[in-house]
Each structure stands twice: as C-alpha cells, then as structure tokens.
Design a protein around this nucleic acid. Structure first.
Length: 609
DNA sequence: ATAGGGTTAG
C-alpha cells in the first residue's frame, strides 16, 4: 500500500505538482499513515521541491520521531527555498536535541548552506566534524567541501580537498573549475577542463561564466567560440546570460547583438535570466532604445527586469522616465530591492530632486526594510553634492556607518571645486592627505584644491608625496565602435596609419572651438610642464582620438559610440560638447562611471560626473 | 535524502 503512495509522491516531486502532492498528503493523513515509514520524509522533500517550505516545516515540526533522513530533507528544503541561513540556525538550535549524529547527507546539506552564505568559519567547523565522523571518506561530501571552499574564495584549500577525492567525476571537476575561474586563475581552470574525458555544458558554463565574473571577458569569448566549435549543444540558457553580460561589460554592441541572435536561434528568449541580461547589455552598450524594446518584450517582468531598465535609464540621464517606470513597477505589486534604489537615487541626483531622493532613501529603509549599503550613501552624497548642498554632504560623510575610502572623500572634494567652496575644499583636502591617497586622479584634485586657495606649500607637498609614492596611473585609452570594426587609441600622438588625417581634423576642430571661446583647461594635467605643453597633452587625449577616427570612418550622420577606461577629463567634456555641435553629430561616451550623450552642444550628465 | 553552471549597483 505505502509503496504505491511513495511512488505517487515521488512523481509529484519530479514533475513539480504541489497540488496533487497536497491531495495525496490529505489522503495519507486521513488513512493515518502520515507518520508511517518513509512517507513523512518524502513529503517534506516534495514540499521543498515545489517551493512550499511552510508545509515542509509544519510536517517536520509535527514528527514525533525525526531521524537523519528527516533532517537532511528539511535542510535541503531550506537550501532550495533560498534560506540557507535558516538551515544553519535550525540545525544549530535543535539537531542535537534529537540525539542524532550527522550523516553524509546532512554534512553535504550544511556545506551547501555555508557555500551559499560565504560562511567560511562555519564551513571549517563542518569540515572538522566530517573528518572525525565515520563518513570521512565520502566523495560526495568532499565535492561539497570543494564547492564550499571555492565559493568562499579559498581555492587552494578547495584543491587540497579535491586531490583527496578517490574517484573524481564531472561534478567535483566542475566545482573545482568554477573555483579557479571565478578567482581568475584561467590557465588552471582550462587545464582541468581539458583533463576531462568529456567536458559537458555544465563544466564549460562553469569555466566561461567564472572567467566572466573575474573580468576575463575577451578570453571567455574565445572559449565560448571553442566550445561551439567542439559541438557542445547549448541545451539550457545558463551560459547565454553570462556571455551577454560579457558583451555588456565590453560595451560591444555588435557582439551583444550576435549573441542575441543566437538566443533567438536556440529559442531561449523567454528565459528571464537571458532577457534581463539583454536589457542590461543594450543599456551598457549605450543603445537605450534597444534596451527599452528588450524590456517591453518581457512578458513576466521581475524585480531584476525593472531594476535593469531603471538603472539603465538613470545612467543615460533619463531620470524622469526612470521615476515613471518605478511607479509602474510598484503598481504591478512588485517590491523594489537594494539595487533598484541605487538606480532611483542616482536618477534623482541627476535632475536635482533632492527631496524625492531622500524620500526614496527613507522608504527603502522604513517601508521596505532594506539595509542601505555604501553605494546608497555614495548616491546620497552625489545627490547633495550636485545640488550644492555641500554641508549636508559633509555631514552625511561624518555620520555614515561605513569606513570611508579615498573615492568617497575625493568625490566631495571634486564637488567643492565645482561649487567654488575653496575653504571647505582645503579642509577636505587635509583629511584626504591624512588618509594617504593612492589614486592619481585624487592627486589632481588635491593639487587643484590647494592651488585654488594659493596654498603653494601644500601644492608642493602633494607633488612630493606623489613623487615618493611612484603613483602608477593606468594608461588611459578609448575605443570607438564602427560596425564590425573597433579601434583602440591610447593617449598621446597615435602611430596609426590615419594619424595625419586625424591630426588635421582635430586641428581644424580646435580652431573652430577657439572661435567659439574655448580655452583649454590645463588644470586637468598634473605633470610639471609649460602651458603650451599641457595644451598639447590635452590635444592628444584618447577620447578625442577615438572621436576623430569615428568622424572620419563612420557612416555620415550615424551615432558615434566611444568607450573610455577611465573617467572623461573636464577639458575633454567641454571639447566634446563643442565638437558635437560643430559637426552636428551625436556622440555617446561611456566612461568608467557613466554615460555621456553629447548632442546639440549639451551633455546628458548635466556637466556633473 | 546528499554534490556542479546564469541576470540588476560598484
């Protein structure tokens, strides 16, 4: 009798049919078998698989005799419901009250929770108990350990455990590959994958996605192509969302479009992960229109869909639209998350809606019960700074519940310069000097702040400090996308075949700009040199080279899309505003922190970045 | 009953 019931229950679990499971449960309860043999434990795991954690827990609490199977089932239930912290706390509170010893199933579940929570300390403790237990040679638990250590960033410990696994299978290998890839150890990850007899889609996804997470975007694309060449069938959409993310990070619109085509060809356009990453990709590749189209085509939008488009609009300076969409989102009954508020406050600071931004911040904490992170405070700081509320900004910095880094103070210092607050600027500069600045752009700010207050001794101090510190500046470069071609330019005179034409064009533009009153702002050049030399430095900034090349080679009238690795300097920002109106072209620059849409002599960032 | 891969900020 109960054999038949068990089979029916298992069918409900594998086919995710919670209502049939509940009917069966009612029947089992009626005939008095709900505490019989394996039935209650099976019921728990069915409820877990169907996401009905409450029902699972109720059964678990009512069981008079819980065994190890019951415990393994409830721990798995919590893990599958994305509540790994509950799993650990329930275990810590009541497991030993049942007078049981953990078995290999329980160890594996606990390690799974630790991995999800990045809880290395607790993971260590579980590891120690496992080693002392009679199950210490279990390979499945060992592969959970590998995964836990890898996810917590202890890749070498993961490898040490991995080496003790007696028969390594594709699961333990994939966990190890993922660990290497996510911590950027590319060659070790590839070597392991190549050691597999038959690497499957899981292992390739672990490799490629991990490398994308650690910033190896181009390398990941080469591997993706290699995977396709080896004929690995893409039977689920996991890898696609990662690869779309890589296109977004590279701001490679053409590449992103090709992956989009692949998505359509394989029929994965209805995957929410995929469509959400497409929205983000188009926004990051500066095609905000395509991002909106991708967003509108999502049938069942979730928080991430809404957040992606809100953040995209905010970064493109379309603050009002972002706020309108937020209201639309709320009216569908969805709750915003932490990331949504980053986008919203960012949007408010863009259009000077100080009160609205503060109101949103308040609602995030008080109404939605979310914990503000450093990013939220940074957005608030930006909100105050842009609108000239510098005292509030400084007050905020002094009361923030975070350790403040150089970038946060530098941001306030830059606002002081913008709003002509010389005295406050020198006060902030003194603080920054005490912090031991490292970033080259901070030194420019410091030097300008002291120079603006005629404190020449301090200017000299900044320069001396910089000289002794041997500040390493990441070389500035920009690239321009022209259909299938993209061209990179480093700052300085280019050694490009089209150098002469570019030079002639830039000189011509320079003449026209000066007729409109342009005077180069040499305060953005840090090196000690004469005025003429400084102007010459600015003349060859990488974003100008990329724009010049774009103007020469692009289809007339088309939008010129440029990406820069660092932030656009203030002088170049002025220059690009002038150029776009002189040549009557739209220029979109994505720099290290935001998008600048230059059109008709203006920029979407409202001159604050 | 236990083990591996994916999206939004920075």
């Amino acid at each position: 009798m109960h054999h038949h019931l068990l089979q029916s229950l298992r069918f409900c679990a594998t086919h995710r049919r919670p209502s049939d499971g509940k009917t069966l449960h009612a029947h089992i309860h009626k005939i008095g078998l709900d505490q019989y043999g394996a039935l209650p434990n099976t019921l728990i795991s069915i409820y877990a698989k169907c996401g009905l954690i409450k029902d699972a827990l109720q059964l678990f609490d009512q069981m008079p005799h819980r065994d190890q199977v019951s415990w393994a089932s409830i721990l798995t239930a919590y893990n599958q419901s994305n509540l790994p912290n509950r799993a650990l706390s329930v275990f810590a509170h009541s497991f030993f009250r049942d007078c049981l010893q953990p078995d290999h199933f329980i160890f594996a579940s606990l390690l799974n929770s630790c991995a999800a929570l990045n809880a290395l300390q607790i993971g260590h403790q579980v590891h120690a108990q496992f080693v002392l237990s009679p199950f210490s040679s279990d390979d499945v638990v060992k592969s959970s350990l590998v995964d836990m250590y890898a996810k917590c960033g202890s890749v070498d410990v993961a490898r040490a455990v991995f080496d003790t696994i007696s028969s390594k299978n594709s699961i333990s290998l994939t966990a190890m590959i993922s660990g290497y890839a996510r911590s950027g150890r590319k060659s070790e990850a590839i070597e392991l994958l190549r050691s597999m007899k038959e690497a499957n889609l899981f292992s390739w996804t672990a490799l490629i996605s991990g490398l994308i997470q650690s910033g190896h975007w181009v390398g990941a694309f080469h591997l993706f192509i290699a995977m396709r060449k080896e004929g690995i069938k893409i039977i689920d959409p996991f890898i696609l969302s990662s690869v779309i993310g890589a296109s977004a990070n590279l701001a490679a619109l053409e590449l992103g479009k090709q992956v989009h085509c692949l998505v359509l060809g394989l029929g994965f356009e209805s995957s929410l992960y995929v469509s959400n990453s497409l929205v983000d990709m188009y926004a990051k590749c500066s095609d905000i229109i395509a991002a909106k189209t991708a967003f509108n085509s999502i049938v069942r939008k979730d928080v991430v869909s809404w957040t992606s488009i809100i953040v995209g609009l905010a970064q493109h300076g379309k603050a009002k639209e972002a706020l309108v969409l937020y209201n639309d989102m709320i009216s569908t009954g969805l709750n915003p998350n932490e990331v949504t508020f980053v986008g919203l406050i960012y949007a408010c600071s863009h259009v000077g809606l100080v009160d609205k931004g503060l109101e949103l911040f308040k609602s995030m904490v008080e109404y939605y019960g979310l914990n503000p992170s450093l990013q939220h405070y940074t957005c608030l700081l930006d909100l105050f700074s842009r609108s000239g509320h510098l005292d509030e900004a400084e007050n905020l910095l002094n009361t923030m519940p975070f350790d403040l880094d150089e970038a946060v103070w530098a941001s306030l210092l830059s606002a002081c310069k913008r709003h002509g607050k010389t005295q406050m600027g020198t006060r902030i500069a003194d603080r920054l000097m005490g912090l031991g600045p490292k970033d080259p752009s901070t030194f420019i700010l410091l030097s300008n702040a002291y120079a603006g207050a005629s404190m020449w001794e301090n200017v000299a101090k900044v320069r001396n400090l910089m000289a002794t510190m041997d500040v390493k500046k990441e070389p500035a470069y920009s690239w321009v996308h022209l259909g299938k071609e993209s061209q990179v330019f480093y700052a300085g005179e280019p050694s490009h075949p089209m150098k002469d034409q570019m030079s002639v064009l830039l000189k011509d533009l320079d003449d026209k700009m000066r007729k409109r009153g342009y005077v180069p702002d040499t305060s953005y050049v840090l090196h000690d040199m004469g005025k003429q030399e400084k102007e010459n430095q600015l003349f060859w900034h990488s974003e100008r080279l990329a724009v010049a090349y774009g103007l020469l080679k692009s289809v007339p009238g088309s939008v010129i899309r440029v990406v820069k690795n660092l932030r656009v300097c203030g002088d170049c920002h002025m220059v690009l505003k002038l150029i776009c109106s002189i040549v009557g072209r739209e220029i979109i620059v994505r720099d290290a922190s935001r998008f600048h849409h230059f059109k008709d002599g203006r920029c979407s960032c409202s001159d604050f970045w």
